[in-house]
Design a protein around this nucleic acid. Sequence first.
DNA 1: ACTTAAGTTGAGGGTCTCCTCAACTTATAC
DNA 2: GTATAAGTTGAGGAGACCCTCAACTTAAGT
Lengths: 205, 205
Amino acid sequence: MTKPLRKDAQRNRDLLVEAARGLYAERGLDVALEEIAKTAGVSIGTLYNHFPQRADLVNAVFADRAETVAKLAEHALSLDDAWIGLTSFIERVCELQAADRGYNELAAARPPQTEDLERGYELMTRIVERAKESGALRADFTLEDMAFVTWGIARTVEATAAVRPEVWRRHLALLFDGMRAPAANPLPEPPLLPGELAGIMGGCD
Amino acid sequence: MTKPLRKDAQRNRDLLVEAARGLYAERGLDVALEEIAKTAGVSIGTLYNHFPQRADLVNAVFADRAETVAKLAEHALSLDDAWIGLTSFIERVCELQAADRGYNELAAARPPQTEDLERGYELMTRIVERAKESGALRADFTLEDMAFVTWGIARTVEATAAVRPEVWRRHLALLFDGMRAPAANPLPEPPLLPGELAGIMGGCD
DNA sequence: ACTTAAGTTGAGGGTCTCCTCAACTTATAC
DNA sequence: GTATAAGTTGAGGAGACCCTCAACTTAAGT
């Protein structure tokens, strides 16, 4: 599809992605582009040559995460227990957030996606529907409500990383308890529509 | 206590606070100081004269919120139903967050405080303890767990304000359902210690 | 009215980050 | 080996924002 890169160009590109990966993980997405270039041992011009838009570099760095999330979703569906499938999927995604400050910020801006959006949407829908049908997940819970989990945990991870890096699990457990069917009381607002959530995610480029 | 201000100085100070209040509410705390000065119709030097530190202006703008939170807490304690006292208190605070982008950011950095820290701590503790004793709030919930609520709602408010400004109430209702005593499953992590939370809040000046 | 301490002003220096582009270097194909 | 397209370089202009300070203005006391 895309034109083949010259050997040195490919190498520089890889160095840039690797440098960005490290800096993003440690300090978040707001690292100066000049610093990424310097860390990669490459000039700022080269960075712009490979990644004209800031988002291009971010996408390159986290492209593998989309794949990872898809794998996690498939694994979740392979588990017998639908509730455990749902919660362990969410927990794994949260672990990704907790392990990488940059990914945490990205997930907070646009809840976990897969490379193939159609497919990811379908996988996650199945995870949620299956949990509802099993009777474990409250009936009024929707796929879009998962964004609340991601957003909430993102902020908790960010705030507590330096002090109690695992305490987000407590926050998450509280959320899970609110998601169980027996816990359900009527919710005051209709869920986000798929289109509304998409609009939110689109606005953060 | 503090020396009395000259009449014009007091007026300029008020203009600055008022300008900052409006800009913070609309656009968050990251407004350029020069813009605040210009909006107030005052020079940048005057702003620095009154508020040498950036945080001084923020504190001046939101000083009244501390008072408001204290009043809300007192009202919550005056209600017969301890659960309603707790949840309506939280809901009111969240409404403050939803109504003001600046306050929302502030609350996300350092969960709701009162002017008199000692007193606020005591009031909120009473709200939580009373709800536990009534049997409505799960026994393993602590005051520090309220920070999860604030953090989570802060992010949801921020993300959804433009699209569905009231949908945070749904997120909150899910949290409440997880806080009810019958919903309680064992939590995987011990709560944040008071000192740990204080450390988090202190780090954001 | 006059004095003076209090307060205001805004140009300007400093820092940081972004982004461009003309000159230079190098991989690759023949 | 050479030609050429592909890729690299880094100085430098542009734009934000921060903060200071010496000169100026004004409220308030006498």
